[in-house]
Computed example of a mutant assay.
Amino acid sequence: MAILVTGGLGYIGSHTVVELLNNNFDVIIVDDLSNSEKFILNNIEEITGKKPTFYPFDLKRKELLAQVFDAHPIEGCINFAAFKAVGESQLKPIDYYENNLFSLINILQEFKSRNISNFIFSSSCTVYGQADTMPINEDTPLKAPESVYGKTKQMGEEMLRDFAKAYRRKVSLLRYFNPIGAHPSIKIGELPAGIPNNLVPYVTQTAAGIREKLSIWGNDYPTEDGTAIRDYVYVVDLAKAHVAALEKLLNNDSDEAIIDIYNLGTGKGSSVLDVVNAFEIANNVKVPYQICDRREGDITVVYANADRAENELKWKSETSLQEALRTAWEWQKYLESRIEYSKSI
Rank of each mutant, 00 (worst) to 15 (best):
Q67F: 14
R169P: 03
D132H: 04
D139W: 12
K50P: 01
T126D: 01
E63P: 05
A131N: 03
S122Q: 06
C77A: 15
A82S: 14
A82E: 06
K51T: 11
Y128H: 11
P93E: 14
S122G: 05
A131S: 10
V86H: 03
D139E: 11
A71H: 06
G76K: 08
I116G: 00
A66E: 11
L65P: 03
L160S: 02
E88V: 15
M155K: 07
F83P: 01
F57W: 02
S123V: 14
S89I: 07
E146W: 12
K165Q: 15
F83T: 10
I116L: 07
F163C: 08
Q154L: 15
Y149M: 13
F111S: 00
E88S: 06
T126G: 01
K151Y: 12
I120L: 14
S103A: 14
I94G: 00
L173C: 06
D162H: 13
G150E: 08
I44K: 10
V127D: 06
S122L: 03
R161K: 14
F39V: 02
Y167T: 04
E75A: 13
L142D: 02
G49C: 07
E88W: 13
I44T: 10
N43I: 06
M155I: 14
T133L: 13
R169N: 02
F69Y: 12
T133N: 04
I74K: 13
P52E: 12
C125N: 07
G87E: 13
Q109V: 13
D132V: 11
A66V: 09
Y167H: 15
N42V: 08
S124R: 11
Y97I: 15
E146H: 09
T133V: 04
F57I: 10
I40E: 01
A71S: 13
S89Y: 12
P52V: 05
N115C: 01
E158T: 15
D132C: 06
L64D: 05
T126A: 09
P145L: 08
G156R: 13
N106R: 06
I105C: 06
E37K: 07
F119K: 04
E98R: 08
D70V: 09
E37G: 10
Q154Y: 10
N79K: 03
Q109T: 13
C77K: 02
L142H: 09
F119S: 01
F39A: 00
L41E: 05
D139F: 11
K62G: 03
